[in-house]
Nucleic acid binder design. Structure first.
Length: 786
DNA sequence: AGATCTACTTAGAAGTCGCGAT
DNA sequence: ATCGCGACTTCTAAGTAGATCT
């Protein structure tokens, strides 16, 4: 079957030929034949197309012909569908198994951040429901509510025992569902005061300090939004962009001060004295001696530039080439070795010591719920490790001090004690419209910030994750119309319109990223809107050869047959331009996104990636699951996961030992084959009543009966078969990173529901971290489809 | 209308852990 | 007991995108 009609399309040469090839040292053989056959249909999700094509099936990279897609949800979402997720269920049903109502000790903050279901859980009294998805974060950017800056002069109040209340190891696990539920929607009476805290957590005066200007703006946005958002269930008291009501945490922890080792490097073959500061930077370089950065001139130049500043004008060291960092490198290796050789107990003790110090920084209390903090450790100084050909690689990333750090915390919360005596924070804010706990200016690029956020397991993150997937699901209801619309615009005489149409097509079909503009002081990578003429080569009659460096300087290479109008359009956009001119000269991401928003509220380019990834998984699982055993089902899942990873171009560098590992596998297989031969020989003899032959090493063999021998042979054969499978999948996945899509693109509810339907334990697919991150999805109905 | 600022998600690599094979 | 490997965790770079400024 397949497609409609005309043969303007040839076999779609849609191969991801050389997957790997980053600019990095991951030289790759290219061209891997990609996967399985799937018969072609035009309205299949992307994934299927890709696989089709790889085999050279006839196919048409056509845009969804209207009406061919069978999905019942292919229409602008009806209200009920939009909300079907589970927001409309009575609360009691939604999270039932997890929350316990009423309890003795609701004065304790709930603790979050662990995957396990703890049955000792306390349920906060408040039956408040978290406000519905869209209202909470969604599209509207809110006015700053507070921003009230507290001058740094304050007596620090230590947040001590409160975070680590007596038993925080066992209340570690409030399921997120419970937390979410608790997140007050009827906000004003914060139901979960953590009484144990010294600084009582109160609701903060949310929207008090808006400026007039800001409120006006807000109104405007509200109007716009109201077209599509659910009626607000927000209580009057809570502000639009409010992310939390109370926030308590302990700030951040700093890396230890530099301890000079005194190992002397050589200059011109002679040892040189360095001050601790100079030595510190030299050591940063020395420990990178065995990385690929050493082969990069840019890296060394940048390092030298920054180090020279620290060495000073008249220093003996005048030329990096005459420096020998080996002694320091070797010292460092020895230190590592020492560490490795420590006994388990020693290691354990050290770890525990560290834990003890860090414990209080690990947690924040958000609206009375104890949540894990994601990155409470300030980044240590080092040399900047930019990816690809980053112009700033090798530059010194200076040490961050408390005076660089801005803390965001609840108005009523104690201000975290500065962990370095005698120093103090740069600034304290009380901004409840943002989720960050602290930030500092990126020392490499002063235009950028480094933030401290809550961990992925937090309710705040979980909520926005869920919103992301709900938005992607909403796209399902619009996609048909959108495809129709851009297909129509391929022929537009308005060049801008035409470019928007083609760009949208690429984003939809190839899951390209939006492609924001980049500065000159960043690696030269592109996304859809920033594609250069030289990145897309049209090969008649209708093939486009893509080759560019995308995010993280990962190479994207793909040959794809497209509809003729797209092909022609690309040719047109290229004419009269140089190779490094922009392909889409009338376009940037904000124009593109502005256009997308007209098609669907809240729609942006990145939603297509989420949508295509999730719909592909859902579709493939549905089609390929054949009701086998758990192992077979897991294999099905992995194939689907891999498909998604390929669509999204999630790559990893081939491990250094990959080849060696393959060789070893082959050797083992050969060895087994030899064993089988011998066994077969013995079997023949045994059948004739003869004793087995001498084994090669001369040891006597047991005289086995034919049945036993046959059994051994079968076992060995099975083992070989398994090893062959392992080999294949290993080779197959050597450059494919499965994790990224699981973490960021695949709606966990698809996985959870599928597991429920096919009796696959969810733990086989989600590790502890993922279970914690996706706690919000665990109670999904088994019939859930994306 | 573009530039800049801000906040947040997405990404691969490096580091660590733990388990099975030897 | 040791090794080797994959799984998982940590780290931080590099994206997207909305808001605000000029």
């Amino acid at each position: 079957m397949s497609y409609e009609s005309d043969d303007d399309d040839k076999p779609l040469v849609f191969r991801r030929n050389a997957r790997p090839d980053t600019v990095k040292p991951s030289p790759q053989p290219s061209s891997k034949p990609s996967n399985e056959d799937v018969d072609s249909e035009d309205d299949k999700p992307l994934s299927c197309k890709i696989s089709n094509v790889s085999k050279g099936d006839t196919n048409h990279a056509k845009i969804e012909p209207p009406g061919t897609n069978v999905s019942p949800l292919l229409k602008p979402l009806a209200k009920d569908e939009e909300e079907d997720s589970d927001d409309e269920k009575p609360l009691s049903l939604k999270y039932m198994s997890k929350s316990k109502v009423g309890s003795s000790n609701n004065h304790k903050p709930h603790q979050n951040g662990s995957a396990s279901n703890n049955h000792n859980q306390v349920k906060n009294i408040g039956l408040n429901k978290r406000p519905p998805d869209e209202e909470r974060s969604a599209s509207v950017k809110k006015p700053k509510l507070s921003d009230s800056v507290t001058p740094v002069n304050h007596k620090p109040v230590a947040l001590k025992a409160e975070t680590k209340s007596d038993d925080d190891h066992d209340d570690d696990d409030v399921p997120i569902s419970q937390r979410i539920k608790k997140q007050t929607a009827s906000g004003s009476n914060n139901p979960s005061p953590s009484v144990k805290q010294k600084a009582v957590v109160k609701k903060s005066s949310s929207s008090l300090n808006q400026t007039n200007k800001k409120s006006k703006k807000m109104m405007k946005q509200k109007q716009k939004e109201s077209k599509y958002s659910k009626p607000s269930r927000m209580p009057p008291g809570s502000g639009e962009g409010q992310k939390w009501t109370s926030l308590v945490h302990s700030g951040v922890i700093f890396p230890p001060e530099y301890k000079p080792h005194g190992v002397k490097m050589l200059y011109n073959g002679k040892p040189v004295d360095l001050t601790p500061e100079q030595e510190e930077v030299a050591t940063m370089f020395a420990v990178m001696l065995d990385t690929d950065y050493m082969g990069k001139t840019q890296f060394k130049e940048n390092f030298w530039g920054d180090w020279q500043k620290i060495l000073g004008k008249n220093h003996t060291i005048k030329n990096l080439d005459k420096c020998d960092f080996k002694p320091i490198y070797e010292w460092h290796q020895a230190e590592k070795e020492k560490k490795k050789l420590m006994t388990t107990e020693e290691k354990k003790a050290i770890k525990e010591e560290k834990m003890k110090i860090e414990e209080k920084y690990m947690w924040a209390i958000v609206d009375g719920v104890k949540e894990k903090v994601g990155n409470f450790r300030v980044e240590p100084p080092g040399l900047f490790r930019g990816r690809g050909e980053h112009p700033k690689m090798g530059k010194l990333k200076k040490r961050i001090r408390p005076s660089d750090i801005t803390i965001n915390i609840g108005k009523d919360a104690p201000i975290p004690e500065c962990p370095i005596p005698g120093e103090s924070w740069k600034e304290i804010r009380h901004d409840n419209t943002v989720t960050w706990l602290a930030y500092w200016i990126d020392p490499i690029n002063s235009k950028e910030f480094k933030y401290v956020f809550l961990a992925a397991s937090s309710a705040l993150k979980g909520q926005s994750d869920k919103e992301k997937y709900e938005k992607a699901r909403k796209l399902k209801g619009y996609i048909e119309g959108i495809r129709k619309a851009y297909t129509k615009d391929f022929g537009s005489t308005d060049v801008t319109k035409k470019q928007v149409a083609v760009a949208t097509y690429l984003i939809d079909k190839l899951a390209l990223r939006a492609g924001n503009e980049k500065d000159d002081d960043e690696a030269d990578t592109v996304g859809c809107c920033t594609l250069k003429v030289e990145n897309v080569e049209p090969v008649p009659p209708n093939t486009l050869k893509f080759d560019f460096l995308g995010k993280d300087s990962i190479r994207y290479q793909n040959d794809v047959n497209v509809e003729l109008p797209v092909f022609k359009a690309i040719q047109q956009f290229r004419t009269g331009k140089a190779g490094n001119d922009n392909l889409f000269d009338k376009l940037d991401t904000s124009k593109l996104n502005a256009h997308l928003k007209e098609l669907m509220p809240g729609l942006t380019a990145k939603v297509f990636r989420t949508y295509n990834a999730s719909i592909t998984l859902d579709d493939m699982l549905a089609r390929e699951t054949k009701g086998g055993d758990v192992a077979q089902n897991l294999a099905v899942y992995q194939v689907a996961n891999k498909e998604v990873a390929i669509i999204c171009n999630h790559q990893r560098t081939v491990s250094k030992s990959h080849d060696a590992q393959m060789t070893r596998l082959n050797e083992k297989i050969d060895e087994l084959k030899g064993v089988i031969k011998e066994l077969e020989n013995d079997l023949t003899r045994a059948k004739k009543g003869k004793p087995p032959t001498q084994s090669s090493d001369g040891k006597p063999k047991k005289n086995l009966n034919p049945e036993a021998l046959q059994k051994k042979i079968n076992q060995a054969n099975e083992k070989i078969a398994k090893m062959e499978r392992d080999k294949e999948s290993k080779e197959d996945l050597k450059t494919v990173a499965l994790g990224t899509s699981k973490i960021n693109y695949l709606d966990p509810r698809i996985t959870v529901a599928w597991c429920k339907r096919h009796e696959v334990p969810i733990e086989k697919l989600f590790n502890k971290s993922l279970l914690a991150k996706f706690a919000w999805s665990m109670d999904v109905d088994p019939s859930f489809r994306f």
